[in-house]
Amino acid sequence: MKALKRKYDFFSHIYVEEGVKNHPLTKNILKKKDSHLIYIDHYKDVFCRKGQNIASQKLSPSLIIAKKEGKLIYEGAPVCQSFGNEYFYYTSLIMNCVYDCEYCYLKGMYPSGNIVIFVNIEDIFAQIDNILKLHPVYISVSYDCDLLACESLTGFVEKWCLFASERKDLTVEIRTKSAVDVRGKFKVTDNIIFAFTLSPNTLYAREHNTPSPLSRIKAASFALEEGFNIRLCFDPLIYFEGFKEEYEALSYSVEENIGFKNIKDISLGTFRISADYMKGLRKAEPYSATVQYPFENKGGVYSYPKAKEEYMLKTVKDILLKYIGEDKIYLWESGYE
């Protein structure tokens, strides 16, 4: 099956909730984009319409600017890794991602391929401060999006770095597939973890519109050079012919360009997705071998058959153990952590 090159056309239309049209971030975003502007009452009027074509929207997503209301911070889901943190939370300032990975669970989770930016980061900060009065907080802020990839539009990462630098009980994980050079851009603080998701070349070919594996590795090395904590995520692992050889090459490249000894930790996990999301994902990616593989449904979560999953985890773990101690490798296995 030939891999078709996907062409993207971002934000030809921007929908703005009437309630945030005067928010400074809204004004700032609108200044940067020359798009058709449509005012709306509530982001769900556009984002949650029935029968949307996610595949087509991923190629030319509209932007929706809105206010996040109600619950702003969530407790970590069981399919996510907590890295041993007792108080594990996540929040989503952006819904959906500018990248178009064939296997991305967001295509099954959201009813739309359009991107929502919630401008009221100050309300999230206020809620975190309330939780911090009770106990420390570990929060992942870039699960349902790629915050760093959208930095030029939102400035959210800069705000998170500043906010975290003044709160020692707060740890913030910013997961990314971007290759943004963070040097000189953000306040350096040791409670920010930039988590770079790395993929070998065969998998990268299924991660449309993303930077190459090498440029992500270089971006990680720049973040490290700047003084940030770096996490590497080999997650999700997806099986393909030449799996072992390509992960060996990828690990070698990490060692050459970053050095495993400098990395805070590594996350390792095979592909898994809630059965509820799989249906939507397969509909959005009807021609992706990655997605159409006959995964097994184990207790409501689709993943590889046990033997294959064990092979994949063991193979990559063994490769990594040549460079890094076991205590730094966090493994996700089916049946949860």
Binding site: D9, H36, I40, D45, V46, S56, S60, S62
Partner: peptide, 15 residues
């Protein structure tokens, strides 16, 4: 009620 058709990203019309 209000409805929002998805707009074609490229066209030469006024909206």
């Amino acid at each position: 009620r209000t409805y929002y058709p998805d707009m074609p990203p490229k066209h030469s019309f006024k909206e």
